[in-house]
């Protein structure tokens, strides 16, 4: 093969490898991983109205899972939800709407009326934050346990053992982040940061910019 052509090819490969390495090293674009499909559901909210996964398409949704009779730790989970809701303007969301949904895994006691009273008692802004459940316990276990991968177990004495967590789902119904409740650092800070990252990706989800974002997914350039 012609010496110049061969050198040209080496040069070309070197540029590609350097470019890819530079992209991975400097990570000019950050994304959140597309972890899995969020489960579909049909729940009943605090106003006894239907709440389905389908009507949440196009919105970012932050979920958490609890029960009304939960002692102390749940108070902190609610505080985080409230903090994110209050500080939402920091997230540079543009036109993208965010919903907050707390799903109760105790449908026997957490009726719509009980959930409504609970929402009022913690001062939740229910225009944006819904409290919901489903009386079909097997299906609820599928949705929360398998779909959202959040462990909970009825201990039989009116209490539940569960992993406190938040799950962030994008407008396509894909889980983009999971937050296993931490006491040392604020989950709210991370959630707000992640909402910004996600909104930026949505704004750049067409044309040439999309290619750059897909490259960021390919190179695992994940936001901390």
């Amino acid at each position: 093969m012609n010496k110049y052509l061969l050198n040209g090819l080496y040069f070309l490969f070197a540029i590609i490898i350097i470019s890819a390495f530079a992209f991975k090293l400097f990570q000019p674009i950050k994304v959140l991983p597309r972890m899995q499909l969020a489960p579909a559901f049909n729940l009943t909210d605090q106003n006894d109205a239907r709440l389905t996964s389908e009507e949440l398409r196009g919105k970012f949704v932050l979920y958490n899972f609890t029960y009304v009779n939960c002692p102390a730790p749940c108070y902190n989970l609610n505080k985080t939800m409230q903090e994110v809701q209050t500080r939402l303007s920091e997230a540079e969301l543009g036109d993208i709407q965010v919903e907050f949904i707390t799903i109760s895994f105790d449908p026997d006691r957490d009726t719509s009326a009980v959930l409504r009273t609970y929402a009022d008692s913690i001062g939740a802004d229910t225009k944006q934050w819904s409290f919901a459940t489903n009386t079909n316990k097997a299906l609820l276990k599928t949705i929360i346990g398998s779909g959202f991968e959040t462990y909970y177990e009825d201990k039989g004495d009116g209490k539940f053992a569960f992993d406190p967590s938040f799950v962030l789902v994008d407008g396509w119904g894909i889980v983009r982040a999971e937050y296993r409740y931490q006491t040392e650092v604020s989950d709210a800070d991370r959630i707000i940061r992640h909402l910004s990252v996600l909104a930026e990706e949505v704004r750049n989800s067409t044309g040439t910019a999309k290619l750059a974002y897909e490259a960021a997914h390919l190179f695992l350039c994940y936001a901390p």
């Binding site: 040209g8 040069f11 070309l12 490969f13 540029i15 590609i16 470019s19 991983p33 597309r34 972890m35 899995q36 499909l37 398998s146 396509w172 894909i174 999309k210 290619l211 897909e214 490259a215 997914h217 390919l218």
Partner: peptide
């Protein structure tokens, strides 16, 4: 030469751009 090479490299060796949304699930499907 550098920019021509870069353009050709991107054109010929860029990764496939999926038309569907790619999921990077760490767990097998149900």
């Amino acid at each position: 030469i550098f920019f021509t090479g870069l353009a050709l490299g991107v054109y010929f060796f860029s990764p496939h751009t999926f038309h569907g949304t790619v999921i990077q699930s760490p767990n097998p499907s149900f």
